[in-house]
Amino acid sequence: MNIGLGVILILIAIIFILWGLSSRKRKYKIINNALLMAGTIALFISILLLTGIYDPYANHIK
């Protein structure tokens, strides 16, 4: 489950980062920075999910 969620999240992160980088030439700097920040956060979370450091379904291991 984590691998599937991580792959989906990494695709969304790549889309956000590419969209933010392509719109840097326009005058909307706030939206631009928000897209880059959202992409970076999504990329970080997807890396945590893919490596297994963060496991949201491991509540039974207490």
Rank of each mutant, 00 (worst) to 15 (best):
G39W: 02
I3S: 14
A42S: 13
Y57M: 14
A13G: 13
I12K: 06
L18F: 14
K29Q: 10
G4L: 13
L5R: 10
L48F: 12
L43I: 05
T51Q: 04
Y54D: 12
G6E: 00
L18K: 07
A58L: 10
N32G: 01
L21W: 11
L43C: 09
S23R: 08
P56Q: 07
L11H: 08
I53E: 09
I14W: 07
L9K: 08
T40L: 14
L49S: 14
I15D: 10
I8P: 01
I31W: 14
I10C: 07
M1R: 11
F16G: 01
N59P: 03
A13V: 00
K62W: 07
Y54I: 13
P56W: 08
G39A: 03
G20L: 05
I41N: 03
V7L: 15
I61Q: 08
N59C: 05
G4W: 01
L9H: 02
I47N: 01
N33A: 11
I17W: 01
I10P: 00
I61L: 10
L5G: 04
A58D: 15
L43W: 02
L36G: 00
L50Y: 06
R24G: 09
R26H: 09
D55A: 08
K62N: 12
I3R: 11
F44C: 02
V7M: 06
